[in-house]
Simulated assay, not measured.
Amino acid sequence: MTNNETANRRSLLPLFGDFLALTKPRVMSLLLVSAVAGAFLGAQSTPSLKIIIAVIVGGALASGGAASLNMAYESELDKKMGRTKNRPVAEGRIQFNTAIFFGIILNVGSFVILTLMTNILAAGLAIVGTLLYFGLYTVILKRTTTQNIVIGGAAGAVPPLVGYAASTGTLDLSAWYLFVIIFFWTPPHFWALAIMIKDDYARANIPMLPVVMGIRHTTKQILLYTVVLAVLTILFGFVSHALGWIYTIGSASLNLALFWYAYQLFKEPDRPTATKLYKYSLLYLALFFLLVMIDSVLE
């Protein structure tokens, strides 16, 4: 290999890293876990390898495409926030039009793969998720209302519907129950983050709940949503025929811990306590979907 070839390869690595960053891979990973869990629940067993591959690849493309569109649209906003100022479009390493085109291409790829390998319902739902995240949340809600993350949370609740539809070709009560559970998980998770970076949101003039209504009000809302979420997730074990005692005991334990973190934040509404809740909420959702997958197979 010549020195020029080596130099070219090295110069491509940062570019590859920037395009990967456009897809928000850490966010994507949790969305893919939820989509695969939906596929397990729909199959009430282990889905075929073809379904699993389609859900992972198609889901990754849709999630990555939505993230790229979001990052392009919010590039000026990202420059004002410490957490996001180094993103590829915000720093000019990738152009706005390039990120938009990349996002569209990924979504087209997602639709084609899910249609060919599963069904049109799963493919359509993946695109609906992108439209909700980019169109509803990013463009319309984020800069206009304190309820942005509540209503916009519907976007993050779509992946398990995609997985479920991929396995069954339809949606029933269990699928929509998963949607509702993620919908109610989203506010405590993101409001904890909003408390952590409240000054960033205020500087960018984004009306997140802690910025507009204050941290004390936000902690009350977090506690309320946590209680509703706990009731929903525990009841899910009785609603779904695919789940049994493993899920019920596990979900009760997860919710006890989540309530404890939410209550601690209510008592001590500060950044360190919010950080603990934020981190646990990520673990909570991952373990919740793991329970769904395990019990779907064992039951």
Rank of each mutant, 00 (worst) to 15 (best):
T2L: 05
N3Y: 15
N3V: 15
N3G: 13
N4S: 11
A7S: 15
N8M: 14
R10T: 14
S11W: 00
L12E: 15
L13I: 08
G17A: 03
F19K: 04
L22C: 14
T23H: 08
M28L: 13
S29D: 10
S29F: 13
L32D: 07
S34W: 01
A39T: 00
A43W: 00
S45P: 12
T46W: 01
T46P: 01
P47D: 00
I52S: 00
V57I: 13
V57Y: 01
A60M: 12
L61D: 04
A66N: 01
S68T: 10
N70I: 01
N70V: 01
A72E: 03
L77N: 07
K79M: 06
R83V: 07
R83T: 05
K85E: 15
P88Y: 10
R93M: 02
R93W: 02
I94C: 07
I94Y: 07
F96E: 13
T98Y: 05
F101M: 10
G103Q: 01
I105K: 05
L106A: 11
G109W: 04
F111G: 15
I113A: 05
N119Y: 06
N119L: 08
I120F: 11
I120M: 14
L121K: 05
A126C: 03
T130V: 15
T130H: 08
F134R: 12
G135I: 11
T138C: 08
L141I: 08
L141M: 09
R143E: 03
Q147G: 00
V150E: 10
I151L: 08
G156T: 07
A166S: 14
S167F: 04
T168C: 03
T170F: 15
D172Q: 04
D172V: 00
S174G: 13
A175E: 11
V180M: 12
F184V: 15
F190G: 05
F190N: 11
W191Y: 04
A194H: 03
A194C: 06
M196T: 09
I197C: 13
K198L: 12
D199Q: 10
D199K: 13
Y201M: 06
A202T: 02
R203M: 10
N205F: 14
P207Y: 03
L209D: 00
I215S: 02
I215C: 02
T219E: 00
T219F: 00
K220L: 09
Q221G: 01
Y225T: 00
V228S: 11
V228L: 14
L232K: 05
L232V: 00
L232S: 06
G237P: 11
F238I: 03
F238G: 14
F238H: 11
V239W: 10
S240G: 02
S240D: 05
H241R: 15
A242P: 12
L243K: 08
W245F: 07
G250M: 03
S251G: 03
N255W: 02
L256G: 15
F259R: 04
F259Y: 12
W260L: 14
A262R: 06
Y263K: 15
Q264H: 12
L265Y: 00
L265P: 01
F266C: 06
K267W: 01
E268G: 03
P269F: 06
P269H: 09
R271E: 15
P272H: 04
P272N: 08
K276W: 01
K276P: 01
S281V: 00
L283A: 09
Y284K: 04
L285S: 04
L285I: 12
L287S: 14
L290W: 09
L290K: 11
V292Y: 04
V292F: 03
V292E: 07
M293T: 09
S296D: 07
